[in-house]
Computed example of a mutant assay.
Amino acid sequence: MRLRSASFRAALLSLAFLFPAANAECECGFKMNDTRDYFTHVIYNNFSAFTPTKTVSSNPDFYRHWVIQRWGIPPQNWATPLPIDNQLDNVYIQDGNLVLKQEGYSKEAILSGHNVSVASIASQSGDIIHGSFRIELKMEGATGGSVAGFFWYHDDQNEIDIEILAKEFKPDSVLVHYTTHPALDESGVLVKNATEVIPLRGDDPASSFQAHRFDWTGEELRFYQNSRLVHANALRVPQVPGYVYMNLWADGGPWSGTPSTTDVFMSVKTIAIYHNTSASEEGIDKAFNLRCEKAGGPSNITVCLDTSIESGNLDPSSVASVITPVQVWAVVLFWVTFGVAVSFV
Rank of each mutant, 00 (worst) to 15 (best):
K167Q: 13
W329T: 02
I128D: 01
A16C: 02
Y63A: 15
K54H: 10
A166H: 01
D203H: 09
V176L: 11
Q210T: 07
S278F: 04
A279K: 13
D156K: 03
N115Q: 01
Q87F: 00
L88C: 01
A194F: 10
Y274L: 12
V237F: 10
N59D: 15
E103K: 03
W66T: 04
T143D: 14
P52Q: 09
L229S: 12
L100K: 06
V67C: 09
V118K: 00
P298Q: 11
S208M: 08
D306E: 12
P81Y: 00
T324N: 14
E282H: 13
I160F: 14
D203E: 15
S208K: 15
N247E: 01
H212A: 06
V237K: 13
D315P: 09
R228P: 15
S112H: 03
S311V: 01
G312T: 05
A22G: 08
F344R: 14
D285Y: 10
E219Q: 14
F8G: 06
N45W: 02
G104C: 05
D185T: 06
L175Y: 02
W152S: 05
R236T: 04
W152H: 05
P254D: 11
A279E: 06
V237I: 15
A194W: 12
T217A: 15
D185I: 04
G218H: 10
L333H: 12
Q94E: 09
D37E: 14
Q157M: 11
V319R: 14
L165F: 13
M1Y: 10
V197H: 12
A341H: 05
V342Y: 12
E27I: 09
S260F: 05
T261E: 05
W78G: 07
S58E: 14
D172P: 00
N226D: 13
L88K: 03
I93D: 01
S207P: 00
P259R: 01
A16P: 00
W66D: 01
A49Q: 14
T270S: 11
I323C: 10
L88I: 04
I110H: 05
L100Q: 01
E196T: 02
A206H: 08
W71M: 00
W71Q: 04
R222A: 04
K31A: 04
F30V: 06
S187W: 11
V268T: 09
L98C: 12
N247L: 08
Y178R: 10
V147H: 00
S48H: 08
W335E: 14
G141M: 06
A287T: 12
D204R: 11
S280P: 11
T143V: 15
D95Y: 07
R228L: 09
V91Y: 04
D204F: 05
I284N: 15
I43T: 05
L3Q: 10
G29N: 11
N158L: 11
I271H: 04
I160H: 08
V174D: 04
E186Y: 08
N276M: 00
D156I: 07
E293Y: 11
A279H: 06
D155N: 13
T35C: 12
A79Q: 10
E196D: 14
A234Y: 12
Q239K: 06
H41I: 12
S57D: 07
